[in-house]
């Protein structure tokens, strides 16, 4: 009978070291897990999944209402009576998505700085900008998912609620690329602004409150003033409504004005102007975020 004692002591690693791509992937995955509370206990999952449920619930209700209308009034009733549909969804859900972003972004940036984890990242083979790019991608992925899921539920609901789903799909298949584009543009906007604000503080609560205030308060402020001002001036003040900027892009994509923006003087500005303004905010904020992190110190 032979016996063997195995060496379970420390082993050196002589295998491959994969460099920045692996690191970035790990940071993105970790960011998504943090945002959604995965692997972090039940309490961490509560808020993010509640928001996803809320956003999806709205879409579900919209689908059910349209389905009921079609059943009662015959096919096409929902469209004829101009019940809210894909183009209107973001107008309705924008604020909720903003608040969700205001909670997710600080989790991704503020925690690491507050708890001191950032210094551990900075001594690894990645740069400060690598770190923030990975966090951006994670935030964008989560918010895009939260923006797409309800719209897809709505689409499926509408097509199944139609007596002839096949016909519905044939007639409305363009809605899909539109809603995907609108979803990602909205998510990118929230990601850029929310992460930029979160990068200025180590306390998640401050960032979240500031962001919610930013989004929610500029609305009544600018809407109220814009309505009093004539012409171009009114239009530009209305463009200062941070909550509506991505919704204008949504309008451009769907070619119709949604509920949130139907009274805004800015809706009459050319599509290119509205999209350009959106890009200024989204890309501009992201650029500042990136630049700030290039030379970040622990």
């Amino acid at each position: 009978m032979t016996g063997t004692v195995f060496d379970i002591g420390y082993q050196h690693y002589a295998g491959v070291r994969e460099g920045r791509a692996r690191a970035l992937g790990a940071l993105v995955a970790d960011g998504v897990r943090t945002a959604l509370g995965l692997g972090r206990g039940a309490r961490a999952k509560l808020l993010p999944w509640a928001f996803v449920a809320l956003l999806s619930g709205i879409a579900l209700v919209m689908a059910l209402v349209a389905g009921a209308a079609n059943r009662l009034g015959g096919p096409g009733t929902a469209e004829r009576t101009n019940l809210p549909s894909h183009g209107d969804y973001y107008g309705i859900a924008a604020v909720i998505l903003f608040v969700f972003g205001a909670l997710v972004a600080p989790e991704l940036l503020c925690r690491d700085r507050r708890e001191g984890v950032l210094q551990l990242y900075l001594v690894r083979p990645i740069t400060g900008s690598d770190y923030v790019v990975a966090r951006y991608v994670a935030c964008l992925a989560v918010l895009t998912g939260a923006a797409w899921l309800p719209q897809l539920i709505l689409f499926v609901g509408l097509s199944m609620g139609d007596p002839t789903p096949g016909a519905y799909l044939r007639d409305h298949w363009l809605d899909v690329p539109r809603l995907l584009l609108a979803g990602v543009t909205m998510a990118a906007y929230v990601t850029s602004l929310a992460l930029l604000v979160a990068s200025f503080t180590t306390r998640r609560a401050y960032a979240a409150v500031f962001l919610v205030g930013l989004f929610v308060i500029t609305t009544p402020l600018t809407v109220g003033i814009a309505e009093e001002l004539p012409g171009a001036l009114g239009q530009w003040v209305s463009m200062g409504n941070l909550a509506a900027i991505p919704v204008h892009v949504n309008d451009v994509i769907f070619g119709e004005v949604s509920e949130l923006t139907e009274d805004a003087p800015a809706r009459t500005l050319p599509g290119a102007v509205r999209v350009g303004w959106y890009l200024a905010w989204t890309v501009g904020a992201a650029a500042i975020l990136w630049a700030r992190h290039r030379r970040v110190r622990p």
Binding site: R17, E115, G116, V117, Q119, V123, R124, P125, T127, P298
Partner: peptide, 17 residues
């Protein structure tokens, strides 16, 4: 940057999530 893969750092202050 790759040189950092061969270095480990244990900071003095809190750094754990």
């Amino acid at each position: 940057l790759a040189a950092r893969a061969r270095i480990g750092y244990m900071p003095e202050h809190d750094c754990l999530p």
